[in-house]
Amino acid sequence: MIRAGLAAALICTSASAADMPAPKSGLEYVSPETRALQADDFANPGMLWVSGGADLWRAATGTSGKSCQSCHGDAKQSMRGVAARYPLYEPKTKRPIDLQVRINQCRTERQGAKGLGFESEELLSLGAYVAHQSRGLPVKPPQDERLTPFIKNGEKLYFQRMGQIDISCAACHNAHAGQRLSGNLIPQAHPTGYPIYRLEWQSAGSLQRRLRGCMSAVRAEPFAYGAAEMVDLELYLMSRAAGLPIETPGVRP
């Protein structure tokens, strides 16, 4: 699986793949205690969001009176593998769309319900429930050439210095993965467990929240939730993580 991931990464990012070691999940950089927490479904706090999401999946909402289940059926089958391939290309907007926005699109366009706010308990729960159905499956970005310019833009952002501290994502996560930053091990930045439960947050959160955290840390103005740059970054990170298994709900310090 790791070899397949590397091969895919080489195809997508020939320039940057050379300085990256074999892809490793962030899970390999956390303490044994945190790993044990993630491994036990009855101790993993992220499962609270997954179980909340299961209830929301079955709950009718909006003017259509339909639930997610009314159209998609049993998520265990219909949603299996979905999180492993998102973000996808959305012809309507001619842009990539991530899972959170897709869930909201379903709500507003098909269920006749209100879109859910970014980082709201409901959106995180539905996102966690959907992504959980892909747990164990390798990240498999779609081979869609319409996505190429957006992956390229995400890659550019990843290597772009930003903020008062003037460093890029790559300056830590490519050049110094496995080394320490104020006591914490720097992971390779593979987004395989989102939405994750972070002990620091005392809550589940999205990849965009995590990215904003890093941007604040380098004293840059973080991109807004749902911004085009955010989705391009998500897209690039997923292409880079190809082959690694989905872990949702991940647990991280």
Partner: peptide, 28 residues
């Protein structure tokens, strides 16, 4: 959303057996 609670306890046990119960509740 309703309170989110997770409870794990064995569905059956032998009389006198020590059983482990795990509970978690979503609360800020």
């Amino acid at each position: 959303m309703a309170a989110r609670i997770m409870v794990n306890a064995p569905a059956s046990a032998a009389k006198g057996e020590v059983i482990e119960i795990k509970t978690m509740i979503a609360h800020k």
